[in-house]
Simulated scan of single mutants.
Amino acid sequence: MLIKSQKVVVAFSAWAILTLTLLTLFNSLNYEYLFVLDLLGLLVITQLLSPYTMKPKWRPRLDIFLMAGVAIFALLVSNKALQMIS
């Protein structure tokens, strides 16, 4: 039986492969689309699989990746906004 941290890794791996496959099938493979979809998947999976009553040991390490992903997402959005303005 898998522990919670392993379930997060397995679920995210399945999500990443699914998004990569779908983007390839629709000929929309782009690093920005892949990154945003994978970040959204990781955020949803983290919320669904983490317990509500306590914070497990693995959660702070995952939060570092989530904060870095949100920061990169903000950079991508600001870059697209600047491209649209100019």
Rank of each mutant, 00 (worst) to 15 (best):
D63M: 11
I17M: 10
L49C: 05
M1L: 13
Y33W: 07
L42Y: 09
L40K: 00
T46N: 04
G69L: 06
L66F: 01
L48S: 05
T19V: 15
G69P: 02
S78H: 01
A68I: 12
D38L: 09
A68D: 07
L25I: 08
Q47C: 05
I3Y: 14
A14P: 06
K57T: 13
W15N: 11
V70H: 00
V77C: 04
E32W: 05
T21K: 00
W58S: 09
L34M: 01
Y33C: 03
V8Q: 11
D38W: 04
I3K: 12
I64Y: 08
A81Y: 13
V44L: 13
Q6D: 15
A16E: 06
L20S: 15
P56Q: 06
K57L: 13
L82G: 12
I85G: 04
L42N: 01
F65M: 09
M1A: 12
L22C: 08
V36K: 01
S50A: 12
L42H: 05
T46W: 02
A14N: 06
F73L: 15
L25P: 01
A14E: 07
I85E: 10
E32V: 14
A68L: 15
S13V: 13
L23H: 02
V10F: 10
L34N: 02
T19F: 14
L66G: 00
M1R: 08
L43T: 02
F65E: 02
K7C: 13
L37C: 02
S28M: 10
P51T: 11
L34Q: 04
K7N: 14
M1Y: 11
Q83A: 15
G69E: 07
T24E: 02
S86F: 12
L2S: 10
P60S: 09
S13L: 15
I17R: 04
K55D: 08
L42I: 07
L37S: 03
L37Q: 02
L66V: 13
T24Y: 08
Q47G: 07
L76H: 09
L43E: 05
L22D: 02
F12Q: 11
D38I: 09
L22Q: 03
L62D: 12
F35M: 02
A14I: 15
T19M: 14
R61Q: 11
S28I: 04
M67Y: 11
Q6G: 14
K7G: 11
L23P: 01
V44S: 01
L62S: 08
Q47N: 06
L37R: 00
S13A: 15
N30Q: 05
Q6Y: 08
A14T: 14
S5R: 14
L76N: 04
A68P: 00
I45Y: 02
Y52V: 12
D63R: 07
L62V: 07
Q6C: 09
V9Q: 06
L66S: 00
K4P: 15
M84T: 14
K55G: 00
M84I: 14
V10W: 07
Y52W: 08
F12L: 15
L75N: 07
Y31M: 10
I3V: 13
R59N: 09
G41C: 02
V77P: 03
M84L: 14
S86W: 09
V10P: 06
D63F: 10
A74N: 06
L40A: 09
S28E: 09
S50V: 06
R59H: 10
